[in-house]
Amino acid sequence: MNIINIDNNKSININDNVCIKDRNNKYKIDLLKQDKLILIINNIDSEMVINVYDNFNLLLYGNIDNKLNIKINIYNGSKLKLNKITKNNNSQENIEINLDSNNSTIKFNCTYIGSLKSNVLVNHKFDNTTSNIVNHAATNNSDIIININETVENGIKNCKLKQYTKILKIDNSKVLIRPILNTRDYRVEAFHSSIVTNINKDDILYLMSRGLNESESIKLIMDGFIFSNIEDAEDEISKIKEFLDI
């Protein structure tokens, strides 16, 4: 898989497939031909627009200390498999996904660590579009708000919407999930699930009875939860852990 540290590359072309341009202080990425790509989005300083023209497997990760703004447009009935994992420090993430043609599909495994406010917006603009959003967030003494808002526009039919959000915490952190599904057509399949849970004390006891101290046990459970949300990029987990210092 190609890896680009987007913070260091203002303009790049890989395999005639991926272009990154700096235009009006925006990152514009065109995913033209079926492939896989890793983008390191460490504290990128401006909005990123990703246009998807073919089936693509994209992994994004980095530290976010301030704001992350990403807009994704999916054309040509393409299927985007997107994994994103960010370590946040009182940051705000705004991710807008536009399903811009018939049959466009997004599978979005979105993972957050640390304190943040996140807004995920998914717009179903054409028939037969599919979105499957899985959010995992883990917090240890930090606050998390996740707003996830999916909309099916008037007259758009046969869309499938699925969203699942789970926050794992170990303390009295303030966490909030706002799942919103807006649809103006009845020919829609929609599903959502939101879970906030503390780490199970019996799980900690089980690990401690195998020699791990309490903090080691909690870390193992937290890491397991966080990285279980990464799909088809499991080989990259050790690099991500090292990069994010987890």
Binding site: N200, D202, Y206, L220, I221, G224, F225, I226, F227
Partner: peptide
């Protein structure tokens, strides 16, 4: 106990 996400080998 069943612990989701924690690989047995790890």
């Amino acid at each position: 106990k069943e612990i989701e996400g924690v690989a047995n080998m790890d």
